[in-house]
Design a protein around this nucleic acid. Structure first.
Length: 156
DNA sequence: GCCAACGTTGGC
DNA sequence: GCCAACGTTGGC
C-alpha cells in the first residue's frame, strides 16, 4: 500500500465537497507529468492519502482519503468547457489521468504547515521542501505515522 | 501582491 | 537538443 499527499485549493474543491459526495469522487484536473505518472502507474485501490488544502491561510492537512480506483483517463481533458481542457491530448492516447478517492477521516483541526515544520522527524517530508509544487506526492510511512500522532495527541 | 522555484514551450 | 522566455504554483 502506498501513501500520498494530495493538494487542492479549497475554493475550487474542498474536504466539504468530498464529504458532501458521501462516497468516492473523482480527483481530476491534474496537469503535470510527474503527477500523471503517479496516478497512472503507482496509485492503487487501497492506497491512503492526506487531503491537503493549499492557497489558504494557514495551509495544511485536513483529513485522510482512500484511493478507490487505479488511474484512468481524466475525462475533463476532453471537455472544451472545462478549465483543464487539453485540446492537444489525443483521444486514443489520453495524456492525463485521474483516480477516485473517498474520505475516511476528517481531522478535528487542520495540521498546518507550521505544525509539520515543528516536528524534526518531518524535516524531509516532500511537502515541506522548498520549491516543491507537485499536487500529488508520495509520503513515507514514518512521516504518515508522525502526522497522525500530531492528530491523535490533540484528540483525547 | 510578491517572488522563488520550477515546468513547459518554442525558436534555432 | 539547447536554452531563454514565459507561465504556474503556492507560501508568505
Amino acid at each position: 500500500m502506498n501513501r500520498w499527499l494530495m493538494k487542492t485549493e479549497p475554493d475550487c474543491y474542498s474536504i466539504d465537497d468530498l464529504e458532501a459526495k458521501g462516497g468516492p469522487d473523482i480527483w481530476d484536473g491534474c496537469r503535470n507529468y510527474t503527477v500523471r505518472n503517479f496516478m497512472r502507474d503507482q496509485m492503487k485501490p487501497g492506497d491512503l492519502a492526506f487531503l491537503y488544502h493549499s492557497s489558504v491561510s494557514p495551509a495544511g492537512i485536513v483529513g485522510v482519503m482512500r484511493v478507490t480506483t487505479q488511474g484512468y483517463p481524466d475525462p475533463t481533458q476532453f471537455e472544451p468547457s472545462h478549465p483543464a481542457y487539453d485540446p492537444k491530448s489525443p483521444a486514443d492516447s489520453p495524456r492525463w489521468y485521474a483516480v477516485d478517492v473517498e474520505l475516511i477521516e476528517r481531522f478535528p483541526d487542520m495540521v498546518t504547515l507550521a505544525d509539520l515544520r515543528s516536528r524534526p522527524e518531518l524535516a524531509q517530508m516532500l511537502v515541506l521542501q522548498r520549491g516543491q509544487r507537485l499536487s500529488v506526492m508520495p509520503v513515507k510511512e514514518a512521516e504518515w505515522n508522525a502526522v497522525l500522532e500530531i492528530v491523535r495527541a490533540r484528540t483525547p
